[in-house]
Design a binder for these strands. Structure first.
Length: 226
DNA sequence: TAGGCCATCTGGTCCT
DNA sequence: AGGACCAGATGGCCTA
């Protein structure tokens, strides 16, 4: 679990998430995609990937056209070997195959690489629309944390929408809201609407897991006490 | 140094 | 047949 995820869960554990949620429509979080310049850039393409794709960034940026890696043989296996996932066995087994098979294999690899890049782009897009501490100095959310937070966010928004509908329905009945919120509205008061309110007695871990069924092991950093 | 997270390769399966 | 999708394996990078 990285620093940004800690920040995220800190924010979830108090009412910051509420604020972010309420302000979300008015401001851009301005968090660039992980591949972009200025991002933490934890995962640059490996030398092998770089060689294979013939690019230094997303392989599908220009329509995902096949690059020349599929055409050439294994003259550059050594440089590929420097990258991840290319051990001696793979190199030798692939090198033994006929050129046609090798070409096909490389084509499949490139396609799979593009597919994964598309998936990562989608995840970056998701990171850009969920509220958490977006900052160039903060490492981006991991994939699993992104998905789990997105799920929680959707659930929270759905619940907030439902509460809003009930409130509108209540107001349409000719009632007026005074402060504090009448007892009748208690079920959709703030603490009820936002599951991660700091007023909750549950620990952070419980809060993180109760709404999503998330394994608590994914929130090991949640060490705040009830 | 161990563990977490990731990119990539690979072979299998399913679909068009 | 070719492409999409998936899961396993592998190794690199980073952090506690």
């Amino acid at each position: 679990m990285n620093a940004s995820e800690e920040n995220l869960l800190k924010s979830i554990s108090n009412d910051t998430l509420l604020d972010l949620t309420q302000r979300y429509g008015q401001s851009s979080f301005g968090f660039g995609a992980g591949h972009g310049a200025g991002s933490p850039g934890r995962y640059p393409l490996t030398p092998a990937a770089d060689f294979l794709s013939g690019q230094t960034a997303k392989s599908n940026e220009s329509g995902g056209e096949q690059t020349s890696e599929d055409d050439d043989g294994f003259d550059h296996l050594d440089s590929r070997k420097r990258g991840s996932g290319f051990d001696d066995d793979k190199l030798s087994s692939l090198a033994k195959k006929p050129k046609e098979q090798r070409s096909l294999r490389l084509s499949i690899n490139a396609r799979e690489r593009r597919r994964m890049h598309d998936l990562n782009d989608a995840l970056d897009g998701l990171r850009g629309v969920i509220p958490y501490a977006h900052s160039p100095s903060v490492r981006k959310l991991s994939k699993i944390a992104t998905l789990l937070l997105a799920k929680n966010y959707i659930l929270m928004q759905a619940q907030a929408l439902e509460e809003m509908r009930r409130l509108v329905s209540y107001l349409n009945q000719g009632q007026t809201i005074t402060s504090p919120i009448p007892t009748a509205l208690a079920p959709f008061g703030q603490t009820a609407v936002y599951p991660f309110s700091s007023t909750a007695l549950a620990s952070c871990v419980e809060k993180c897991t109760s709404y999503s069924g998330t394994p608590s092991s994914l929130f090991k950093h949640c060490n705040d006490k009830p």
